[in-house]
Design a protein around this nucleic acid. Structure first.
Lengths: 126, 126
DNA sequence: TCGTTATTGATATATCATTATCGTTACAAG
DNA sequence: CTTGTAACGATAATGATATATCAATAACGA
């Protein structure tokens, strides 16, 4: 797979590169449609899957929502979920090890943090 | 709803009260079967739903997994997810406000933290 | 104890995200 | 250009979770 260069595939990657946070397949579809109006959802799923398999994208599971995806290789970070527009945003920084929270005898490997609230645009609109 | 006291309903609540963390409907089914072998999954879903509507239970969405539920009224806390047995455990404590992580102009309302690793039992088995 | 009816268990159906199918389109090697 | 076929778009099929249906059961007031 990924043997030919297509407008759709290029445009999907471009969508991810321009995004301020991880995207759901439907968000990718809507954003990419602005450049390729006839692109189909199957193409979005197909390419996301092959990008993940090739290591270009990473899945970002979010509580209570369908998986999102972001370009791989970023430094450790977490996400902000807007309760108004329901978009996810990448945040810089991390409070560091949270191992102390775990009960005695538990072995902590990683952690995930999600902040919830209103993004800048939605605060402005309120 | 919730007009009659039944063995099933009592036992489902008891399962939640005895649990070390939030449970999926299937986990509730398996645990409650130990006391009521013939209980059905529909009864579990039905009662969880009515307990949530009456405020006795709260949904606990977990990244990449079906919703779990826990008894309401607990103090602010977070959860540990075991990558081996896939159970969720309640943890005490919280690092406090994480507002600083959010980008300028974003309004933070709440946060969720998930630790991933191995629970005590699974560490022992390794 | 009896009778009403809420509740149950089994299972059909709904929902939603994702994948497979298939005929058509369009890369790109020759 | 021509041509083989990867990739596409539309949509049917799938899988997992959750809800609805319905005959049978059991809670509980009279």
């Amino acid at each position: 797979m990924l043997e030919r260069k297509t407008r759709q595939r290029e445009s999907i990657l471009e969508t991810f590169r321009q995004s301020a946070g991880p995207l759901t397949p439907n968000e990718v579809l809507e954003m990419t449609k602005q450049r390729i109006p006839d692109i189909g959802i199957a193409t979005v799923y197909r390419n996301i899957k092959s990008f993940v398999e090739s290591g270009l994208l990473l899945p970002v599971p979010v509580p209570g929502e369908p998986d999102r995806y972001e370009v791989a290789g970023k430094t450790h970070h977490h996400h902000f979920i807007c309760r108004s527009c329901h978009k996810a945003f990448e945040m810089e920084g991390c409070p560091g090890s949270l191992t102390a929270l775990a009960p005695e005898g538990f072995k902590v490997e990683t952690h995930e943090i999600f902040l919830y609230g209103r993004c800048r645009d939605c605060v402005a609109k309120a």
